[in-house]
Structures are given as C-alpha cells and as structure tokens.
Design a protein around this nucleic acid. Structure first.
Length: 153
DNA sequence: GCCAACGTTGGC
DNA sequence: GCCAACGTTGGC
C-alpha cells in the first residue's frame, strides 16, 4: 500500500530547482530533527511513496513539485558534522539519533500556494493547513493527494 | 512525573 | 520583525 507525504523544505536551503539539478533529481533529505518526522521516515515510508515537495519559510509557501521516496531510511551524516547546522552533539555514532531518506523529484509544478490550498474545501483537513502545524513531514490522505494533483492539472 | 522556561518553526 | 504554537530541557 502506497502512502503519501508532504515534505517541507526551505528554498534557501534546498529548492525544488536545486533538487531537479541534482543527479537523478534526487536529494538526501538531511536535517530532520524532530522525532515524529523521523519516525514517519523510519516506520511508515516506503520507496515509491508519493511526496508533495513544499516550500516553507519563504515569500510564497506552497506545493511546488511532485516527488517520490527514493530510498529507505538511513543515518543522516550531518548529525556528526560539527560544521553542519544540523550537528547534534548528543547523538552517538553507535546509536545515531537522526535518519534521512532520499527524495526524487518527478516534476516541478506551478506553485500551489498556501492560500490556494486553504481556499479549497476538499483540503480542509490537510494537516499542513492546521493551525500551529510545524511538522516538516506530514502524511497526506489519498483523497487529498488526488485533489492536489487535480488542482495542479 | 510535573511544568516553567526556553528555543524553534513558519506564516504574516 | 513579530508572535502563536509547539517540542524539548531540566530543576524539583
């Protein structure tokens, strides 16, 4: 059973264009430092799951691409790199705390912006629209996935 | 185990 | 830059 996800990235860090320019249009999703998001990657994500590539913390937040999960979860190396903003001194190499998956962009889309998403009644329960939501990875229900693909046509 | 203080996220 | 919401930390 395929699952669907929405994954946030700050375009100043890794934009959908950056991801498209990478080899195989695939990037390692480094920097997840939230246990709930990590557990989604570790326990529920499968290669081939659908991903909405979302730009956050920018002028026009929104869904900017369709992607897929391209690897299983494995250790995020940035947690051990003192030079990295994602360095975690408390994480030991014998018991890595943080994981990543690889994400492959399938196509860039027009920016389906946050206001676009909010105005659509069929997306009222989309988790990323919930007040106070800060999770960088959220599950997307199949009906929401279908609706967003429709809106992107 | 409680909970206040603090840090971070992210839209505006 | 502001600030609401939320997660984490750490004293007790």
């Amino acid at each position: 059973m395929q699952n669907y996800w929405l994954m946030k990235s700050e375009p100043s860090e890794v934009s959908v264009d950056d991801a498209l320019a990478a080899p195989q249009a695939t990037v390692a999703w480094t920097g997840v430092r939230n246990y709930q998001a990590r557990n989604f990657m570790r326990d529920a994500m499968r290669v081939g799951d659908g991903v909405l590539f979302y730009h956050s913390s920018c002028a026009e937040p929104g869904v900017v691409g369709i992607a897929q999960v391209a690897s299983g979860a494995y250790t995020d190396p940035t947690q051990f790199d003192p030079q990295s903003p994602y360095f975690d001194a408390a994480s030991k190499s014998e018991a890595p705390r943080w994981l990543l998956v690889e994400v492959q962009v399938l196509r860039k889309t027009s920016n389906l912006t946050l206001p676009d998403l909010r105005v659509d009644a069929a997306l009222a329960d989309l988790l990323v629209l919930k007040k106070g939501n800060r999770l960088s990875i959220t599950p997307v229900e199949p009906r929401h996935w279908q609706r967003i693909l429709q809106l992107l046509e």
